[in-house]
Amino acid sequence: MPRLRRDETTSVRFTLNGEAVSRRADPRMLLSDFLRHECGATGTHVGCEHGVCGACTIRIDGTMARACLTLAVQVEGAEIETVEGLAPEPGRLSVLQDAFRRHHALQCGFCTAGILMSLDTLFSDEPEADEVRIRDVLGGHLCRCTGYEPIVRAALDAVSRLRSGKTNV
């Protein structure tokens, strides 16, 4: 039973987008701050820090999660995936990312990382996800630019391409 004192940092070891990472954190450090400022993974954005806006949504051990509602020390040993890990390789985009681009499903791009992580998780968990499921999951995100409709269309396009075995571009 490790007890971490309030004013001490400890080494948190986990995998970030498949790579082993170790950085120090004190007990109160939020995972959102930890990823962005200690690990340099600034693609995950912070919009409200109380779990409503969804901008900081990432994947922890395969399930979607708000990074702002998680302590860094909680993810010891966990597998963390963020928007930086979505593309198959530098210079290419995943099917979902490409659909967002084609459907103009982003404008300022600030909320986008969280939305991509939620949809990417949904599509891997439920390849048959329909519009109702997509809308339900998107309900956990706020976007001020797009009015959401292009996001829904991009998601539907992506899931149908994924179902038909289309590969990344």
Binding site: M1, P2, R3, P27
Partner: peptide, 17 residues
């Protein structure tokens, strides 16, 4: 909007908690 200081205990068993 950052938490105040606290100690953190990761319990390995219910008894520890």
């Amino acid at each position: 909007m950052k938490p105040a200081l606290f100690d953190y205990v990761r319990a390995d068993s219910l008894d520890e908690a």
